[in-house]
Design a binder for these strands. Structure first.
Lengths: 181, 181
DNA sequence: AAAGATTGACAGATCAATCTTG
DNA sequence: CAAGATTGATCTGTCAATCTTT
């Protein structure tokens, strides 16, 4: 079985492509496991949350980010960063959450069309009810499935990948380097 | 800033919930990095593939799985497993790929409504053109962003998470345990 | 005009229902 | 009828265009 996934086509490339180094067997194996993770874990987490609370993972993150903020309130653009999503994705999500009565919007002064989102009491209650089941799933799939060291290593590596994408500010994800604070 | 994400609400639970152990600071940090990874990496890979080849990551996996199979042909249900997706998701995806002329369906005898998918020559060419850019992105974001050891650790951990979800057969993901074969 | 946010059209995923063949 | 696959409705995310406020 000649894999033509990441170790390259069998035939020589005659492309303009500036020569890529294909992956060796070890790298390829790690890559496949990682693809398994990203195709699998979000689905599993979404499924549990949707079943038990009618939320998806992103919406959960939105509620959780708000609940952690002073006044349970955050500017939309800050909330987007905290929740690891685009502003557009957030805006749609908040519309849904607002419709359900879990979040409220409030436009506030300042440059641009500044808007704050606030977690309602009803939203806080939902989160309180939902968190235990979510944590249980997190433990089952990840935390308790790995040794302490393996979990640390996973976290470290994940952090470096996120940094490499450049999609979210380093400070946001920060606070994990060994022994600080 | 009292986080109410995974370390639990500040107030005591008065739920029927059978007591969950909240995450400690280290676990929480690893979890957050992991969430960063799964919200971030698929988006980055999809973006590159869509821009350069009009494919998303799942469709790429479908083509790649076929190209690695004998006769570049696979039963739909086997292809779904190989590509890490549901049968329904696959069916929709193959319809698109077929419309574009990259894959062909062919119903074949046997129990149920057995159908084989085959990579066309045109599909193989697309994959050949597309692979280098995808590998380059994989290197940039993951392979070359980590030390060799960190990558191995990431792969190992990812494999165990996939196993914990139970979503894909162990044999499928297998072949990575230390030193076998 | 620039920052901040929303919108609508469209592509893709999921779920439940349905179809097909042995 | 059971295994295998498809379908359609519905929901979510993305992208580009647009709106609003300073």
């Amino acid at each position: 079985m000649d894999e033509v996934l990441m170790d390259g086509p069998v035939e020589k490339l005659t492309q303009v492509e500036p020569e890529v180094a294909w992956l060796d067997a070890q790298q390829l194996d790690a890559w496949k496991q990682l693809m398994g993770l990203i195709m699998t874990l979000p689905v599993a987490l979404d499924t549990q949350l949707k079943r038990d609370a009618g939320l998806n993972l992103f919406e959960y993150h939105v509620l959780a980010s708000l609940s952690a903020a002073p006044q349970a309130t955050l500017l939309m653009s800050d909330l987007a960063e905290q929740s690891l999503g685009s502003l557009s994705r957030l805006s749609h999500a908040v519309s849904r959450l607002e419709r359900a009565g879990w979040v409220e919007r409030r436009s506030c002064g300042g440059a641009g069309r500044r808007t704050e989102a606030r977690l309602t009491e009803k939203g806080r209650q939902l989160l309180r009810r939902t968190a235990p089941g979510h944590v249980r799933e997190a433990r089952r799939l990840v935390i308790d499935a790995l040794t302490c060291d393996a979990l640390q290593a996973l976290g470290e590596a994940a952090g470096q990948v996120v940094a490499a994408t450049g999609l979210f500010s380093a400070e946001l994800m920060g606070r994990n380097r060994s022994g600080d604070r």
